[in-house]
Amino acid sequence: MDILGLYHYWVFAVLLMTGFYAIVAKPNLIKKLIGLSLFQSAVFLCYITFGKLAGGTAPIVGKGAELFSSPLPQVLILTAIVVSISTTALGLALVLRIKEAYGSIEEDEIQEQDAP
């Protein structure tokens, strides 16, 4: 049972690092942003898993429910999801401007142009 529960955290570790790999190893800027949002998703899932209570249900008080999972991580992540899409949009806007200025969205080509 415990191993099955821990498997959740292992998956999050793998997700986190897959996103991180896209950020460090891929020269394409949009791919880096995709990696960033995967990284964020892993953190979101991890937080929500912390708040899970065995036998609990979603923290909406209704008839027939007594045990509730923690509302606090859910509040943090709920706002973080909307913030994450706004900041991703900001990142994409920066990428578009870089494309207009340099004609490329590949990191190595941009740095070649910047080299004196």
Partner: peptide, 17 residues
């Protein structure tokens, strides 16, 4: 991810996702 949120009792977060 949304389905996983739902399974982990986070209905509000699943709705946002």
């Amino acid at each position: 991810i949304a389905a996983s949120f739902f399974l982990l009792d986070a209905a509000d977060v699943a709705l946002t996702e």
